[in-house]
Design a protein around this nucleic acid. Structure first.
Length: 602
RNA sequence: GGGGCUGUAGCUCAGCCGGAUAGAGCGACGGUUUCCUAAACCGUAGGUCGUGGGUUCGAGUCCCGCCAGCCCCGCCA
């Protein structure tokens, strides 16, 4: 109901200005002009409430209820307002409760029945020239030569959903996979392989990903324990970064091997990404240093080139440094991230010309990003009308509240985690079929259980506010009831059932009419979709979309349970079918923005 | 030592620009099926919003102190 909200808001601003002209001339009272129009906190209060009378009371030196009365008087003089809204009511200490006219809601519903975007407007960029400027979402970002593990789950799922939401709003979204393909750890892997498995560095497919992981672990251990190995590794990185052909070939082979593994997971999750690893920014690293140097931001400390942060204080009360070039001449992740920021905001052809850059990484990197963003801002690499944001998320924990591990204490591989979700979904389904005496084909069972399993993993993650740690639990996410993917999928299955039993969802919409409370609450829930999408775009919190879809499903299930559709008399039958259709479209669209496909039967 | 995040029902969590009597789900307890998939629906019980101050007409929400947990803090990413 975005359009209704905006319309009402303007009417209220006008009413306020007419009722109290004295607040108009006051320069510092922008907030007093705000009618504070918000959705009603409870259904009894109507659809919207206006909270400003209480706030204005002090400024105007009048009781809140008098102020509310004056606003209402002005509103009721306005024909435009009377078309939309029932007569406003003053409640409590001075709230104004607004109820939208039923005819107006019906109009909105019939408009939506023919609107593929379900009321969600396309975003209009503030600047015309920027309308094609991409939004960059940097997410997933696994490391080459490692398998994807549970640590990549949240970034991948949340980043994908945010991408889908911004794409739906009409932005050009660049989904960048900033894979770790360039750091010191890479040098140590190559050094180690040179000794133990040189064929891996010259022959394609000589080692599989599992072996690579083992080699990586060994290399890491040597790196931590052996000084000599540490310095050969660092040399190896420098060789690579300066374009040594042998090192480059080895590197390419390792990347190709890992890429196969990643692609498999992304295909299962139905996630598209453009791989643009850290190595991509290699040609731009030097430029970062020269730029920072010419801006006089660089300080050489202990042999390393650093930028000292303004606000943050380090250990001894001194400013906190960010190292951008190590004493051995090598660059590190801060340098890469700075080069990436510069490139992403810089106009083409040597940049992406982005309007907004979003990083979906764990909350542990908050300090790092705060530092890097500060430097980029001081270097003026971020245009004033552009945004850069770190979208942090908490740890994935097990039931014990600690970082999720396997029983043997290893990190959980993402592929194993997905396998288990699907297996559990399948055994639930088979048990259910047996109990109900249903017979289904194997391909049906496979399809349904893999859809449910993956959906459950995604939904469980997305439905929680991302900033808190997330307790991973198969039973809970696959539960047949509650705020889970299966519950939402089931609501859609019920609607599909109505279609199968002869309900034509595409019925005439000229003369919609509704009487029952269950119908009206469904209507109001459907109409909130656009508000939710716009809110998620701004706040980057997909859990708000999940809550909405859950509520919509609950309200629909109540409607389905208490109100007959197919057996109703006309015109109720057609009108109810229209609501079913809109519910289905809204749920499907919402789920697809979460990256979750839906089912006809389950 | 410095910084960040978190603390809300037995459990897992929502809570939007500060607004009316703090909400869900699970679990517990009780009910509903000649009817479109009961993977559903209806009802009951359950709270000192970590804690102490402050700001405000009004604080779970903002500010300050304290307690607890997790994370980060110069050559890993």
């Amino acid at each position: 109901m975005l359009n209704i909200y905006e319309n009402l808001n303007i009417q209220l601003q006008n009413a306020l200005a007419r009722a109290f002209p004295e607040i108009q001339g006051n320069t510092h009272t922008y907030s007093e002009f705000d009618p504070q129009l918000v959705p009603a906190s409870k259904p009894e209060f109507g659809d919207f409430q206006v909270n400003c009378a209480l706030k204005l009371s002090k400024f105007l030196r009048q009781p809140p209820r008098d102020i509310a009365t004056a606003i209402i008087t002005q509103l009721e003089l306005n024909k435009e307002f009377l078309k939309i809204c029932e007569s406003p009511k003053i409640a409590g200490p001075g709230f104004i409760n607004l109820t939208i006219k039923k005819q107006c809601l019906i109009q909105e519903i019939s408009r939506r029945l023919t609107d593929k975007r379900l009321g969600v407007p396309l975003a209009v960029s503030k600047k015309n020239k920027q309308s094609n400027a991409p939004v960059i979402i940097d997410f997933s970002s696994p490391n080459i030569a490692k398998e994807m593990h549970v640590g990549h789950l949240r970034s991948t799922i949340i980043g994908d959903s945010l991408s889908r939401i911004l794409e739906f709003r009409g932005y050009v979204v660049l989904r960048l996979n900033h894979v770790g393909d360039w750091g010191t750890q890479f040098g140590m892997l190559i050094s180690h392989l040179k000794e133990v498995a040189p064929e891996a560095l010259s022959t394609a497919n000589a080692v599989n990903i599992g072996d690579l992981v083992t080699f990586y672990r060994q290399a890491k251990q040597r790196f931590d324990e052996d000084k000599v190995f540490r310095s050969t590794s660092r040399n190896e990185v420098i060789k690579l970064q300066s374009g040594d052909p042998i090192a480059l070939k080895a590197w390419n082979l390792l990347c190709a091997q890992s890429r196969k593994e990643f692609e498999e997971i992304y295909n299962r999750l139905d996630i598209r990404l453009i791989e643009r690893g850290e190595s991509f920014y290699n040609p731009y690293l030097e430029g970062v240093i020269t730029d920072l140097n010419s801006l006089e931001l660089l300080v050489i400390d202990d042999g390393a080139k650093c930028v000292f942060l303004k606000d943050k204080l380090g250990k001894d009360g001194k400013a906190c440094p960010v190292i951008v070039q190590k004493s051995d001449g090598g660059f590190n992740y801060s340098t890469t991230d700075l080069a990436a920021i510069r490139y992403r905001f810089n106009p083409a052809p040597v940049g992406d010309g982005a309007q907004r850059v979003i990083y979906v990484t764990d909350a542990g990197q908050a300090n790092h990003f705060a530092g890097v963003f500060e430097i980029a801002k001081r270097a003026k690499w971020i245009p004033d009308d552009c945004r850069i944001e770190h979208v942090p998320f908490g740890l994935v924990q097990g039931d014990d509240g600690k970082k999720l591990k396997t029983r043997s204490g290893n990190t959980v591989r993402l592929r194993d985690l997905l396998d288990e979700a699907v297996e559990r979904a399948e055994s639930d389904l088979r048990l259910r079929l047996k109990e109900e005496g249903r017979k289904e084909t194997d391909s049906f069972i496979k399809h349904v259980s893999s859809t449910i399993g993956i959906a459950a993993v995604k939904y469980a993650d997305l439905s929680q506010n991302r900033v808190t740690n997330y307790q991973f639990n198969f039973e809970r996410m696959l539960a047949l009831q509650g705020n889970t993917a299966p519950y939402l999928l089931y609501a859609l299955v019920r609607i599909a059932g109505i279609t199968r039993k002869g309900g034509q969802l595409d019925t005439q919409t000229n003369n919609l009419q509704f009487q029952l409370a269950q119908e009206w609450s469904l209507i109001k829930a459907i109409l909130k979709f656009d508000d939710v999408i716009v809110e998620v775009e701004e706040e980057l919190l997909p859990n708000r979309l999940c809550s909405y879809l859950f509520e919509l499903s609950q309200i629909f299930n109540r409607f389905y349970d208490q109100v007959p559709v197919l057996k109703a008399e006309e015109p109720n039958r057609s009108c109810r079918l229209a609501l079913c259709k809109l519910t289905a479209c809204t749920l499907k669209q919402g789920m697809s923005l979460l990256g979750i496909p839906t089912l006809e039967r389950m």
